[in-house]
Simulated scan of single mutants.
Amino acid sequence: MDGKCLRGAVRADGSRMVVLAAVRHDDALTAALREIGAKTNEIPEFAPLLDSVDDADLHEAVITVDAMHTQKDHARYLVEDRHAHYLLSVKTNQPTLAGQLRKLPWAKAPVLDRSRDRGHGREEVREVKVVSVDGLLFPHARQAVRIHRKRRPLGAKKWQTETVYAVTGLPAHQASPAEIASWARGHWIIENTVHWTKDVTFVEDASQARRHHTPAVMSALRDLTRTALHRAGWTNIASGRRDYTRPDATLNLHGIP
Rank of each mutant, 00 (worst) to 15 (best):
D2F: 02
L6G: 09
G8C: 07
A9S: 10
V10L: 06
A12C: 11
D13I: 02
S15H: 13
L20P: 01
A22C: 01
A22E: 02
V23R: 02
D26H: 08
D26R: 05
L29D: 04
T30E: 08
E35P: 01
I36M: 03
I36D: 03
A38W: 00
K39D: 11
K39T: 08
T40P: 01
N41I: 09
I43Q: 07
A47E: 09
P48S: 08
P48Y: 05
L49A: 01
L49W: 06
D51M: 03
D54V: 05
V62D: 01
D66A: 06
A67S: 10
Q71K: 05
Q71W: 12
D73L: 11
D73G: 14
Y77D: 05
D81E: 15
A84D: 10
L97Q: 14
A98K: 14
P105S: 06
A107F: 13
A109Y: 12
D113N: 14
R114G: 09
D117R: 15
D117F: 14
R126F: 12
E127R: 14
K129D: 14
S132W: 02
G135Q: 10
L136R: 11
R142Y: 08
R142T: 05
R151P: 07
R152P: 12
P153I: 04
P153K: 15
G155F: 10
A156Q: 14
Q160N: 14
Y165H: 15
A166Q: 11
A166T: 00
V167W: 06
V167C: 07
G169P: 02
G169K: 08
L170F: 11
A172K: 11
A172N: 04
H173T: 01
R185K: 12
R185L: 13
E191K: 10
E191T: 11
N192Q: 10
D199A: 09
D199P: 08
E204K: 05
E204V: 07
D205A: 04
Q208A: 13
R210M: 07
H213Y: 03
P215V: 07
P215K: 09
A216R: 07
R222F: 00
R222A: 06
R222V: 01
D223M: 00
D223E: 08
D223C: 04
T225I: 04
T225Q: 09
A228Y: 00
L229M: 09
A232C: 05
T235I: 06
N236W: 03
A238E: 03
G240L: 06
D243W: 09
L251S: 02
L253S: 01
G255A: 01
P257C: 03
